[in-house]
Amino acid sequence: MAHQDDSMTEFETTLKSHAHQLVDCLERGRFDEAVLMIHQLNQARDRGLYQEVGKLTRELHSAIVKLEIDTCEARETSQITDATDRLSYVVDMTEKAANRTMDLVEECVPLVNYVSYEAQSLTADWQRFMRRDMKAEEFRELVPRIDQFLKRSMNDGSQLSQNLREIMLAQDFQDLTGQVIKRVTRLITELESNLLNLVLMAGQVDRFAGIQHDHAQLRADQLKQKEEKEPSKGEGPQMHADMREDVVSGQDDVDDLLSSLGF
């Protein structure tokens, strides 16, 4: 970057010093010298411009090399394709984990329901027995039920603890997907800084070539595009919701908003 500034200042110094001489020549009517000076100025500007274009080309090339986008080897090796694959892997992993967890929970539900239902019904009978409010015949029926309940509780208990352990293990995706997401984030940051460099280089070329962009117009266009992005589109989960005015920070906020609308 320092070098670019050097060449720019060099050009500007030449421009400044020649400007006075040019006016001087013109005032004194020495047009041949003036034309020569304009020619020299042009040459200095062209030299700078060619240098900048050359630098831009080199930078572009090295950025492409860094991005590892190789036209010959098509898409297979590009990091973007790789990142896409990685993110699909995250989607697969999280979906698998969610389904595995829900399978196990669904398995647990009837076991827990049985224990609580049967315990309730046994308690009623057991209390009658304790109050000595039970015939011998009824007691003989109660005994195998208690026996079965204890056996099932034992089996179901170990099944439950095994399922809980597996639910815990199903969360191991967090570690793997976390690593993948971090890698992809790093790639995007690198991409951004490389692109930013390119933009800076291109800006330097613009200065030499004297290209003026209508920044106000560009910004207005961007703003318009932003406004045209309808809310109907859907944006997905909002980040930093608590720091933003236009986003609710939870269900309570939603309820407040809706009740203010007469809901």
Binding site: P231, G234, E235, G236, P237, Q238, A241, D246, V247, V248, S249, V254, L257, L258, L261
Partner: peptide, 9 residues
């Protein structure tokens, strides 16, 4: 997951 006030309105 849409949580913008405009969207809720």
């Amino acid at each position: 997951a849409e949580a913008k006030r405009d969207q809720i309105i």
